[in-house]
């Protein structure tokens, strides 16, 4: 795919004779690590699983980048691997997660690592309220089914177009639209209390 912005780097990776974490692969990793981690975090719902899924994703990319044939955008391929790794991991660790309150604590502590891009200084109460809000929105996402969660994350958090979502998930455009419609209904139900609490008082 000629319009792929990552094509040049990927080709360089494929042409690399010795497998190494330096050079081209390091560039590729630096380019995608935050995107991959974000997708993994929003789908898995906690930092521990997000880290595991991200690690798995880059392991797969490293081992199989030479097999990539540019039938889709490289980023779509990466997203697909990250989505599958996160869903698999979440499925595997579901029992553990439900049995532990660590998830809530981890989510709270993770909120403190968020990068605040606003230059305005916030009051502590505003910061606490924002964290609470973020945790509640994440919980609303967590309550969606894996398919709907994935499509919401890709569409709204990663800002992928319908076509890119379709390419990433290897489903038709119609399926993307119908899934998004179902996701909206579910999400509106889940977000209604958040809206009431944080916006409408």
């Amino acid at each position: 795919m000629s319009s792929d912005p990552d094509a040049e780097l990927v080709v360089a990776c494929q042409q690399s004779t010795t497998p190494s974490l330096e050079g081209e692969f390091r560039q590729l990793y630096d380019r995608f690590k935050d995107r991959v981690y974000n997708v993994c975090y929003r789908i898995s719902g906690n930092p521990t699983d997000a880290l595991d899924a991200s690690q798995e994703t880059f392991g797969i990319i490293f081992r199989r980048v030479s097999e990539f044939r540019f039938q889709s955008r490289f980023s779509s391929w990466v997203y697909r691997i990250a989505v599958n790794a996160s869903i698999d991991l979440r499925r595997r660790s579901r029992t553990r997660r439900f049995a532990s309150l660590d998830v809530v604590q981890e989510a709270s502590s993770e909120a403190s690592r968020y990068e605040i891009q606003d230059s305005n200084v916030e009051m502590p109460s505003q910061t606490a309220s924002r964290r609470e809000f973020e945790i509640e929105v994440q919980r609303a996402i967590d309550r969606l089914s894996p398919k709907l969660r994935t499509i919401v994350v890709l569409r709204y958090l990663e800002s992928l177009s319908y076509e890119e979502v379709s390419e990433t998930l290897k489903v038709s455009l119609g399926t993307v639209k119908s899934r998004l419609a179902r996701a909206h209904d579910a999400l509106d139900r889940e977000l209604a209390p958040v809206l009431d609490k944080h916006y409408l008082g």
């Binding site: 690590k33 880059f58 990068e115 958090l157």
Partner: peptide
């Protein structure tokens, strides 16, 4: 609401885990 969720940075632990995951 969804767009207001912050972008996260990959933690440094990911860098540390990468060599093991890639078998290097």
């Amino acid at each position: 609401i969804l767009a207001s969720l912050p972008r996260l940075s990959a933690p440094p632990e990911l860098d540390e885990r990468l060599p093991t995951e890639c078998g290097l």
